[in-house]
Design a binder for these strands. Sequence first.
DNA 1: TTGAAAGCGCTAACAC
DNA 2: GTGTTAGCGCTTTCAA
Lengths: 337, 337
Amino acid sequence: MVTIKDIAAILQVSPSTVGRALADDRRISAEMKRKVNEAATQVGYVANQAARMMRGVESNLVGLIVPDIRNSFYSTIAHALSRCLLSANYQLTLCETDDDRMLELRHIKELTSVNVAGIILVPSAKPHPDSARFLKMTPHIQLLRKQQLLGEQWFGIDDRRALYESTLHILSEGHRRIAYIGGTEALPTGAARVQGFREAVKTSSHQVDIHEELGAPSSPEFGREAVRRLLSLKERPTALVIGAVQNTSGVIDEIQDQALSVPRDISVVGFGDELGYRWWGPGLTTVQLPVSQLATACGLWFLHHLQNKGDLDTPYSFISPPQLIIRGSTAAPSNPR
Amino acid sequence: MVTIKDIAAILQVSPSTVGRALADDRRISAEMKRKVNEAATQVGYVANQAARMMRGVESNLVGLIVPDIRNSFYSTIAHALSRCLLSANYQLTLCETDDDRMLELRHIKELTSVNVAGIILVPSAKPHPDSARFLKMTPHIQLLRKQQLLGEQWFGIDDRRALYESTLHILSEGHRRIAYIGGTEALPTGAARVQGFREAVKTSSHQVDIHEELGAPSSPEFGREAVRRLLSLKERPTALVIGAVQNTSGVIDEIQDQALSVPRDISVVGFGDELGYRWWGPGLTTVQLPVSQLATACGLWFLHHLQNKGDLDTPYSFISPPQLIIRGSTAAPSNPR
DNA sequence: TTGAAAGCGCTAACAC
DNA sequence: GTGTTAGCGCTTTCAA
């Protein structure tokens, strides 16, 4: 490993001169800076961050904790954040929790241990109390999901409104037997979404039959099973409203496998917007969430506070509105009551 | 920040005793260890990795460099690797290059600077010579793409064979006017894939018309344009063979927009296997690449070498075979010559 | 079984 | 404008 001492030895100057030259200190002559920089690139010098940090210089690592990076929500977030952080010379450290609170705690400890400048996290369903304790030691902000326990700052999406709007759309098409397939109410997002669904239904002046399939954890498999259960009812729902990304692919696969015609036999509103939704049958009507914008906004805000030592404790929520994308999978029911 | 000194002060022992107790040194009495551990959790002590590293202890960070995490190839890789590394207590640091060699170099320097234990990378098209120089200082291994310049160890996929097989499939269906839409030959993967395409064509005993659309960089937009160009030919190809993931969605979107009937008007073989490919029209026939397995194998191998100080210099290639998934988008041409 | 002390590479306060 | 020196938190000799 090449250190500033080595460079100092080569140029016959003191280590501090080299250090200052590399830090572009204004007390160092241009000539010396030139020589030092030349020698540094010559021998392939790379500053030792560990040593810097021991001197109190802040780390340029930011931890990102998400459930599963393969989920396009989270890879979009990771991408947007890494772009955003890069511009300020920060690196992203990726941690996956698989929605496991112990794993989450382990990652938080680990990140604290490497002195990350901050942590951006999508918290798990029921975080460990110790996670909150360790997070107190590090600037952090929550994304998408919000757990009171972990802090007061949050960038999220209006989940209630997302489902409110997709349900309203279905109602406006004339459906009166509607099923909701979503995640558990234990997750704040899950709770907000069913709530949105229920509220929308309440606004209807007609009598509306509803079925709720709330699964934990959300998964394609749960989506499939929910569809099977719903189709076996005497009175089948004429429309399906989905309230979790992970459920969506299972639901639409099952509908395809059962050879139902969409939207004739059944209308479907998806959640999230994966690449392939537009290819499915007549195109899946869905609520699109502005995840990329959200992550960028979050990254900028976070950076701003890291750099200005601003406090990330005062409660603040940034709520971003969803957008309904209407494709071919929703229409009026073929035989309304 | 809580240090071992603080714990030492609380327990009225020396810092070294605390350090040893935490390291589970066998010379420390069980009683003392118990007290130290209790005090440590009590006050929320977290070891300072920076300080450890200064003493020569290896970092537990592994750098992952990929072009774009939103690409499902790379998010799959990131997921598989992070699982794999987690079991050995390593963390993943994510870097996106956007296929930009300067960005790649910057990331490599940065990673060297934080003393990562190693680097796993999907190299860019034409890496900067300095990247090679800095990589020499750190254990590293290449994934998917292989650049001689950057090192000798590589875990990849048999790209030549992937295209060889998809082309063979198309030929066996009876097509004689075939177009290839893929990436530039400047990338090793791109080159191998066209080569596979050409070799397959050569095996045919019939006369086969081919068109090659090689784009750089690959993108949905390029895919769309390529399709438009191909469809405007007097003699339209009856089959399309795709040789790049990024092109695939553009190609199939354009075919859908042009309202072509697949496979009647044209047959299509895709590349990679995104979630939505099975929803597109009659289902997209495609070559599936075992990316997850590949990444896991790579992670295991890498860990093994990190932990055993094994050398990662001796040339070694691990090549994984692709698999053709036949769905509905390929059939015999409706009006063969 | 425990303590004292050196030193990793760097920065910054203090000299000159 | 440049050199000297102390010290960040930890591990690891060497001493006791």
